[in-house]
Simulated scan of single mutants.
Amino acid sequence: MAATDFEGRLQDDLLATTAEVEAARESDAALVDARPVDFYRDETQSPAARAPGTIPGAVNLPHHAALVERDGAYYLDPERLKANIEALGLDPEAPTVAFCNTGHWAASGWFQLSEVGGLESVSMYDGSMAEWAREDDRPLQLAERGTVTVGDLVD
């Protein structure tokens, strides 16, 4: 096999900024938290984020929920994934932003939503909860307490 040159380029339209996430909260865009449910429900907190919880209005599509184990390896089950996306009631034509703690699970979420799920306008918030929780006045959704601000939860 002969070597080949590859030249990648950043596709800025696939990344969402914090300002775009704030705007998405006020529009018909969907916010999809790709973290496991215990992070989404604020039962677990990433050390990268200043506070637990999720972005208000977000739905949860855990990055691993459509994986199946077979012969010691994990595979994405497209039918299970499509059923999970359908259960969330996402509009396939509306803008959708995937996020997690620091962007790694959000990358999987972006791929699942866009490339397998067929949603048309998916971006990834690579700063995710680590960036969202930097400002004290940003809102967080907690499973038991409702909406609070980051500043309500940190010293």
Rank of each mutant, 00 (worst) to 15 (best):
R25N: 06
N84C: 07
D28L: 13
G57N: 03
G103T: 11
L90Y: 01
E20Q: 13
E26F: 07
A49N: 03
A51C: 02
R41Q: 12
A130H: 10
R145D: 15
A58D: 02
V154T: 14
T54C: 06
L67P: 04
G146Q: 12
S108D: 13
D137P: 01
A24N: 02
D137T: 14
D152L: 11
L119Y: 00
P62R: 06
E144N: 12
D77G: 00
E86K: 14
L76Q: 08
A83K: 08
G72D: 06
A49L: 07
R41V: 04
R35E: 08
R9P: 02
R80D: 05
V97S: 05
A24S: 07
L76S: 08
R70W: 11
A143S: 13
P62L: 07
T4A: 15
N60C: 00
A143N: 11
L67C: 05
D137A: 10
A19K: 14
D126S: 08
A49K: 00
E69G: 11
R25W: 05
N60R: 07
L153W: 02
G53H: 06
L15D: 03
Q141T: 12
A16W: 08
D152I: 13
V122G: 04
G8D: 11
I85T: 01
L140F: 02
E20N: 00
G8N: 10
P78K: 10
